[in-house]
Amino acid sequence: MSIAILAIAGSLGALSRFGLAGAVQRSTRLLVPVGTFVVNIVGCFGLGVVVGGFHTDAYPVVFVVGFFGGFTTFSTWAIETVRLDIAPKPSRSSVINFLGMPALGVLVAAIGYFLAT
């Protein structure tokens, strides 16, 4: 049951990511992948709040956890960093994306987590 909820919630998270990342990316002239960045920041904060505030396996909680799992993405961040020319000589934008995403992701997750605890 939990696995089915996680899969359904994750698919809705993926669709929401597609919508939000696309809208953010279209609204900017920046060449950096700011759509993925915004999605991941929002998702890290959201999951931090849920995990920090709700220590339960109740299905609504499982659903929200699954949603943010599918909403955020690690693989896109990794390949976008590579495509910003991390090798052989790292570009400034690739370094910012590589270091900034985990730093901000963990920071906002911590803020959400400890606010909700």
Binding site: G10, S11, G13, A14, R17, F18, N40, G43, C44, G46, L47, G48, V51, G52, F68, G69, G70, F71, T72, T73, F74, S75, T76, W77, M101, P102, G105, V106, V108, A109, A110, Y113
Partner: peptide, 18 residues
């Protein structure tokens, strides 16, 4: 965008660190 994007997760990574 769909399968690999949601197979991997940045939020779980960040919250596990916290």
């Amino acid at each position: 965008i769909g399968a690999l994007g949601s197979f991997t997760t940045f939020s779980a990574f960040s919250v596990e660190v916290v």
